[in-house]
């Protein structure tokens, strides 16, 4: 199954079917990666000048018709060797952050040369349950 971290998929099922609560966190961060994540394995997070480990805060619109997308934008300026971007992950901001969703960039791998900016505009990351 794509998209959901396996552990958090279970938490969601429990939230719906057992009415248990999931972790309450203050926000979501978008992380950039150089490999493809899976439901059980994190991607290799980008480690390079211009990117801060842990990602960048991103806000999302209220879901409608079982879908949503980001309302905020984010950008990173490559200050080192060329980036090869493959995956993305959405983590919460808990004291010990938890990975919720993952995916791959359209057209990955995307090369970002030194000095260039990788940007995610509003609605650049869409999430859907249908």
């Amino acid at each position: 199954m794509a998209m959901f971290d396996q552990g958090q998929a279970g938490a969601i099922l429990n939230a719906v079917l057992r009415q248990s609560t999931t972790a309450s966190t203050t926000g979501i961060k978008l992380r950039l990666g150089t490999s493809a994540p899976t439901a059980t394995a994190n991607m290799t997070e980008l480690s390079s000048s211009g990117y801060t480990s842990g990602g960048t805060v991103m806000t999302f619109n209220a879901a409608s018709a079982a879908a949503t997308s980001n309302s905020s934008s984010a950008s990173w300026t490559n200050g080192g060797s060329t980036w090869s971007l493959v995956g993305l992950e959405l983590w919460d901001e808990a004291g010990s952050p938890v990975r919720w969703l993952f995916g791959s960039w359209t057209g990955q791998p995307i090369s970002i040369a030194n000095g260039n900016v990788f940007q995610v505009a509003a609605a650049g990351v869409a999430a859907s349950l249908v």
Binding site: A2, S75, N116, V120, A126, A127, S128
Partner: peptide, 18 residues
């Protein structure tokens, strides 16, 4: 001049390749 490259991603339950 450098450029800005706009990334997009679609996260969904089922991956098309899968």
């Amino acid at each position: 001049r450098p450029v800005a490259i706009f990334g997009t991603a679609h996260l969904r339950m089922f991956d098309p390749a899968e």
